[in-house]
């Protein structure tokens, strides 16, 4: 009998304890962050969308080779002699025109492996993480700064240069030239 009343009382009493706790929480400020309006600070080493600073890119293809999922495609064309390809920010002359620098973010796994080998530190992670698209094709980002016309032009230029060079070589080969003296035929000391 005593047990019965004790049970009844403790049942009721513990309900009130619980109610006291929830009532206190009614006045605790909410922990919610209203996301699009206010944002959490991202961690220092966060890895999000890549960005390529094309002014510094020398088209060395190291990032594309480091990429484990092959999401970076780079095509380059050599600059024709006498043409100014530009300089990197640390003053080195560039040798290649980058005619294609595509990163497919649908494939990208955000591993940051492409960032480390870059000799000019031109490819790096940004803090942009909201770039969803309705079509996958829209996730292929084109970073090359040259216009499509310019790219074609550079390719043609180089092809022309090559052709000229080849023609020159052929001309040189065709013409009789006095052969340089072979090393072996030199008199031994």
């Amino acid at each position: 009998m005593k047990e019965y009343f004790k049970n009844a009382w403790s049942g009721l009493f513990t309900v009130f304890i619980g109610m006291k706790i929830t009532f206190k929480h009614l006045f605790v400020p909410a922990v919610t962050i209203q996301y699009p309006d206010e944002r959490l600070q991202l961690p220092e080493r966060e890895r999000n969308r890549l960005y390529v600073n094309m002014d510094d890119c020398i088209g060395c293809d190291q990032c594309a080779r480091a990429c484990p999922v092959d999401c970076i495609t780079i095509e380059t064309v050599k600059g024709v002699p006498g043409e100014d390809v530009g300089k990197t920010s640390n003053g080195k002359r560039k040798a290649l025109w980058v005619t294609k620098f595509d990163i497919d973010f649908a494939k990208c796994c955000y591993c940051q492996l492409c960032v480390f080998p870059c000799p000019t530190e031109c490819i790096y992670m940004t803090d942009v993480f909201e770039f969803s698209e309705l079509k996958r094709e829209n996730l292929i980002y084109d970073f090359a700064t040259l216009s499509l016309q310019e790219r074609e032009e550079k390719k043609i230029n180089y092809a022309k240069f090559e052709a000229e060079k080849a023609a020159e070589k052929a001309a040189v080969k065709a013409a009789p030239v006095n052969k340089p003296v072979d090393n072996q035929e030199l008199p031994k000391p």
């Binding site: 929830t22 929480h25 009614l26 006045f27 605790v28 400020p29 909410a30 922990v31 919610t32 209203q34």
Partner: peptide, 13 residues
């Protein structure tokens, strides 16, 4: 609203 605030949330905003 009551449920949200009791759980330290905001509820519909």
């Amino acid at each position: 609203k009551v449920s949200a605030h009791m759980q330290d949330r905001l509820g519909p905003m």
